[in-house]
Amino acid sequence: MLNDLRQTARQLLADKKVDVVIGYGQADPAGPAYPVFITRPEDTEQLVFNDRCYNNLTTFLTRKEIRAMGRAAVLVKGCDAKSVVVLAVESQIDRQSVVVIGMACNGVGQPSLAKCRTCDVHMPRHTDMVIGQAADHAIEAKDRYAELAEMMSKSASERLAYWGQELSRCVKCYACRQVCPMCYCERCVADKNQPQVIKTSATTMGNLAWQINRAFHLASRCVGCDECTRACPAGINLRLLNLMLAQATEEQFDYRPGMDKDAQPVLGCFSVKDKECFIK
């Protein structure tokens, strides 16, 4: 598998099909892998792929510095592949000019991350090629939201207390925004000050307003790569916020972002038949 990967990358660079391969490198085999940007065929030996390859590399596709390097090939796991689809739908990348190398994946982390335990895309979809073969994992839809069900079984004030507690630890470092492939805005609403949409004062409310914005801007767009959660230095389980909207989107609109490259996005559209039982 690794040989295939390096061979493919080498070929792409040698044939000048791409100018840069965004992949994973690893200095310490026991430590996590990190993103590498390979521009010369001979450097492809640095590439690795294993269960320490956490990053969703597609986030780099929209970065100015990377765009400046030219045409890119990017390594994606099944979850990351979905963000490529969303980015293309949202006109952020020209899908034709990016080479997407899918990597069969049996999950990352030891033990596996929460997202991997409920993953149903071990074989990446909508890629230009897939390297390797993943084991078969049967996942029921309800499993994806099991963690959420547990939280929702608590009372509203317990939940509010939980999030109040959690978000009091947020330091607004915006690491969650930085790693998110869907957070590509040039000027984030959090940085807008006339008017100031999100309070900057050092209270929990400001943090909550920020996280509500982050989560809702990802509504029906978040592909569940969970990079935000992994990146959070305060260890806040941001994944839960994303799951809430993912579940609602799936239930209400039968839509999972990034699964079907031809599906209409959910927001910015409507159906006259949308449910409105909550409206009097």
Binding site: A156, S157, R159, A219, L245, A248, S271, V272, E276
Partner: peptide
């Protein structure tokens, strides 16, 4: 119609973070 769809999802988020849904009306 756009608003209705947006609120439907936004309510889910509010409810999820434990907001008192008896205080928001559509």
């Amino acid at each position: 119609y756009h608003a209705r769809r947006r609120w439907m999802l936004f309510r889910v988020l509010l409810e999820g973070i434990g907001f008192d849904m008896r205080r928001v009306h559509f």
